[in-house]
């Protein structure tokens, strides 16, 4: 048999080889930051349950410059996640729905909802200051 098909190995750093893959890994990396941030929030809940001192200490920690940097990085990745999530959502929707509604309305509807909900969250949070 003269055949000797050559199988190229998948390079360990395949995700660095192409912009599409780099962006994919960036998108996926958001989960690590979001997970850590969620654990931070869970910790905050425990502190909230523990009493005012613990809560205030946790709140002070949130203002720590390192923590702010971490929060902002998480925020950036969350935005990337949010936009890609909205872009992909119509393509996960059942084909019947997708054809009836159209990709852009699904995507924009989702993004619109995201904006409204987040404004409500910030508004609710801010109400303590004005009250």
């Amino acid at each position: 048999m003269s055949r000797r098909p050559y199988v190229r190995p998948m390079p360990g750093n395949w995700f660095m080889k192409h912009p599409a893959y780099r962006f994919y890994m960036l998108r996926e990396s958001s989960c690590v930051f979001n997970l850590l941030y969620c654990i931070n929030l869970l910790n905050g809940l425990f502190k909230l349950a523990a009493g005012p001192d613990a809560w205030n200490a946790w709140m002070t920690m949130q203002g720590n410059p390192l923590m702010v940097v971490f929060a902002l990085v998480t925020l950036g990745l969350t935005l990337i996640h949010t936009i890609t999530f909205a872009n992909m959502a119509p393509r996960v929707a059942p084909q019947q729905v997708r054809k009836a509604v159209g990709d852009m309305p699904i995507r924009n509807g989702l993004l619109g909802g995201v904006v409204v909900v987040n404004i409500v969250i910030i508004a609710l949070a801010a109400m303590g200051g004005t009250a």
Binding site: M88, R91, A93, R98
Partner: peptide
């Protein structure tokens, strides 16, 4: 899209 519609 075909694949992810099938996941759903």
């Amino acid at each position: 899209a075909a694949i992810n519609q099938n996941k759903a």
